[in-house]
């Protein structure tokens, strides 16, 4: 089972991943991380592990394990 890992502490909430996600699986969470950003979160039901979020992320927040 594939898995999308999100390192919330690296996220700066730029929103590129949300903008480009083909399945609208990503959104900002309510809680703040240590940098005072509201990091991205994933709806596991919708994610198809295509890697687009990894590609557009400037802060290496995402990893995908097969």
């Amino acid at each position: 089972m594939a898995e999308l890992l999100i390192d919330k502490e690296l996220c700066k909430a730029c929103g590129y991943c949300i903008h480009f996600c083909p399945k609208e699986a990503l959104s900002f969470s309510e809680e703040m991380n240590q940098k005072s950003y509201t990091p991205v979160q994933v709806d596991k039901e919708k994610c198809i592990f295509c890697g687009t979020c990894y590609t557009v992320c400037p802060d290496t927040v995402f990893e995908i394990r097969a």
């Binding site: 502490e9 700066k12 198809i48 592990f49 295509c50 992320c57 400037p58 802060d59 990893e63």
Partner: peptide
Amino acid sequence: MAVQRKRPALLKDNSWCAGCGHGLFTRL
């Protein structure tokens, strides 16, 4: 179709602004 993606080993938290292209470039 799941594609495996892994953070490059030498990269860590960067200090560029949110949405800055520098982070993208260093990853590539």
